[in-house]
Amino acid sequence: MLEIRDLCTFYGKVQALWNVSLQINEAEIVALVGSNGAGKTTLLNTISGLLRPASGHVFFLGQQIDGLPPHAVVELGISHVPEGGRVFPEMTVRENLEMGAYPYQAWQHRGETLEQVYQMFPRLKEREKQLARTLSGGERQMLAIGRCLMSRPKLCLFDEPSYGLAPLLVAEIFRIIQGLRDQGITVFLIEQNVRRALEIADRAYVLENGRICMEGPCAELLESDHVRKAYLGL
């Protein structure tokens, strides 16, 4: 569904990604794990069009999408939940969700999608008219996921969804992400919480210093010595 070939991205003169290649198939959860500064967010921002790669390509459903502006990428069906959720604080919960449905096609179906999102997150329905800044951290993350779903995406990109949340909420967010896969939405998940990510994902890639150093089914990675030593502290 998504294919990345030999991607190199720079920040000015500093190279952040080195020949990254990876593949995501339909209706699977693929995790990208790595430590702080490994280039995970850079990779997501390159996919969603915020950054342009210096070389290499990104293909989505057979179409080349590198170099497209962010709004065009969203219209094709890739939706991005940025780190920390980044909801619009001075807008109500409902307005935040409606903004998620901004692309033309999604706007036509916004009533219907809103119902589905409210069914998934009854809390958001209860707080429909509240300003987003009055929500708790977990609710904000839910709102960010809801906003992402409002564009009726085929692929969801998650940037550190567990960041800053209490363990109980992290478990809930991860359950929700698994639920998305069961609905047929493909998920690309970026996490520092390596154990959790490997537990729910189907396959994973390990990113170190801007390079992919390992890949494979999660069960295998959880067994590997390198992952156990470097990320799980075993």
Binding site: R86, G100, A106
Partner: peptide
């Protein structure tokens, strides 16, 4: 609403599909 979202968080606004 889209103009307001640009004022609140321009990058997030781009992620929601606003040009």
């Amino acid at each position: 609403l889209a103009l307001q979202s640009i004022g609140e968080d321009e990058e997030a606004a781009a992620h929601t599909g606003i040009n």
